[in-house]
Design a protein around this nucleic acid. Structure first.
Lengths: 109, 109
DNA sequence: TGACTATGTGATTATATACTCATATAATAA
DNA sequence: TTATTATATGAGTATATAATCACATAGTCA
């Protein structure tokens, strides 16, 4: 059986995973890998309402994936945990694997 | 603006991330890193109903994180994408960072 | 064959999440 | 001061997810 310690760890890890479990949040992290950006530029880049983007950003900040600083009127967000990007490539590997599996299946029909 | 290609990629990546965005599913993946297991042993280890575990397992299989084989009555699950484990350590790094931040904050009070 | 065991699934309910709109806050400039 | 701009947040609605229970399926063995 799981210990309480492990349960807590898994709970916290799940929160981080959940924070990047949304296409727009993935797009945000991907955008920020090339440099810091303000909310309005992020919103324009991913094509969504600023209010919506603001909420997505606060989820990512809450989990320690992003951090921000204020510069005049603007709030600039940046990647705090770049190791997240490694996970992105792991997911891409998964997807390639799946695509290859499907290809093999198709060839067998 | 995002291209359609990128949108699709982010959508698929979000699905994989979502598949591990649950404490029980994290516990399952963590359990399977030490070797293949059947549903009933997984259910006992994580302390949840078999029907519930079965559903969580099918989510993970659906995203290519796990795969399974049948052995008699039992269905044995194993880790198909071990790179997921690297992400676990990234998340642990995030959590340590957050804990340190909190410590610094506390010390400043 | 029938009994038993492991697993999966349909239906239901409770809860969580995402999005939109309207509004609030805060910094800046006229 | 007022107006403007960037950002954040409350409320409401729609949708997605998780857990439970009952039942179905499928493999094994007497």
């Amino acid at each position: 059986m799981l210990t309480k310690k492990k349960r807590l760890l898994f709970q916290k890890q799940a929160e981080i995973a959940k924070s990047i479990s949304h296409p727009l949040r993935i797009a945000i992290v991907d955008f920020l890998k090339d440099g810091d950006q303000c909310v309005c530029d992020i919103a324009e880049h991913i094509g969504s309402e600023r209010s919506n983007v603001s909420r997505h950003l606060s989820v990512l900040v809450g989990c320690g994936v992003l951090e921000y600083r204020k510069e005049g009127l603007k709030v600039i967000y940046n990647l705090k945990a770049p190791c997240i990007l490694d996970f992105f490539s792991c997911m891409t590997t998964c997807l390639k694997q799946q695509a290859e599996d499907n290809e093999r299946l198709l060839a067998a029909l």
